[in-house]
Design a binder for these strands. Structure first.
Length: 289
DNA sequence: AGTATCCCCTGAGCGC
DNA sequence: TGCGCTCAGGGGATAC
């Protein structure tokens, strides 16, 4: 489940269900799920067995479990859900899901953690923790910018970085090095709220407008989190397999042909990077160039 | 160096 | 029924 609110729902679920527990064994059922762990499956499982989960953390759409050990330095099990990844807490012995990729068993014999991923874009790696700009995070995501839910997120810095870009506004919003956590849904929602067209050049955008669109992204993601995230189908669920409800509150995403909630004009869809951009053609005028 | 395109996958839904 | 096409909450690797 892709964007920040959905990943945060999963992180919170993991914190409640696996923090404090010790990993007994890990079974990698599909090698693609750990393709980013370059030392391979034996190293992956070997480094996890016997480790205790100290905390569940998140930055943007990445989440990780901090793993403590009496003798070794702390490491992290870094995860990305890709387009279709789920982390599920399941009773031992529950039937395997069709797309079960990795299983984590615990020494307490309690519910196991399962990674289920239809499209296999998601996956794990075991990584060292490093300090970047005062934050402790896995080295593989040192390039990922702070997200708007981070207490140390700087609106000023994010606005400045956005205005330095020479690209379309939506591309900048999706750039995870700039501000992390925003994906296709919340980018479109933020653009609608701030009445900006997705192709608007970042070059020349005013300080006020840049600030407004980032504030809108923050607001919409916070609201979505309050509803348990956005789910159109069973692919996007929390660790207990339950869906969020924010899809009912979407203003433009997936709303092609339906009336804009502000002006009544039919919402339009345009191709964008092998997917889509949804917007109101009246509220969000294309800037002339 | 910064930006843009191409892929990695599986499955659902649609028109023919 | 089945085929072929489009589409899907992402991002790394490569090409410009």
């Amino acid at each position: 489940m892709p964007e920040l609110p959905e990943v945060e729902v999963v992180r919170a679920g993991l914190d409640g269900h696996v923090t404090g527990r010790t990993i007994a064994a890990v079974a990698v059922l599909h090698p693609r799920a750990i393709r980013r762990h370059l030392l391979g499956p034996a190293d992956f499982t070997g480094r996890l067995a016997g480790r205790t989960i100290a905390a569940a953390q998140r930055r943007g759409k990445y989440l990780w479990l901090e793993l403590s050990d009496e003798t070794n330095p702390d490491i992290a099990l870094l995860a990305h859900l890709g387009m279709s990844g789920q982390l599920l807490v399941q009773p031992v012995g529950a039937p395997d899901e069709k797309h079960l990729r990795v299983r984590f068993d615990f020494t307490d014999g309690g519910p196991e953690l399962r990674f289920v991923d239809q499209r296999t874009f998601g996956g794990f790696l075991v990584d060292d923790l490093v300090t970047v700009d005062g934050a402790r995070l896995p080295s593989a995501i040192a390039h990922i910018g702070r997200d708007p839910m981070d207490p140390d997120f700087s609106v000023r810095a994010a606005v400045a970085a956005l205005r330095r870009k020479k690209t379309e506004l939506k591309r900048a919003l999706l750039d995870q090095t700039l501000v992390s956590g925003i994906g296709n849904i919340y980018a479109d929602e933020a653009l609608w709220r701030s009445k900006l067209h997705w192709t608007r050049p970042t070059e020349g955008i005013s300080l006020a407008k840049a600030t407004e669109v980032l504030a809108a992204a923050t607001d919409v993601m916070r609201e979505a989190l309050g509803q348990g995230g956005t789910s159109f189908d069973a692919l996007y669920v929390n660790v207990n397999g339950q869906s969020g409800y924010f899809d009912r509150s979407l203003a433009v995403y997936g709303q092609e042909g339906l009336p804009c909630g502000r002006c009544g004009t039919a919402i339009r869809r345009e191709p964008f990077m092998n997917r889509s951009s949804y917007f109101c053609p009246r509220c969000q005028r294309r800037s002339r160039s």
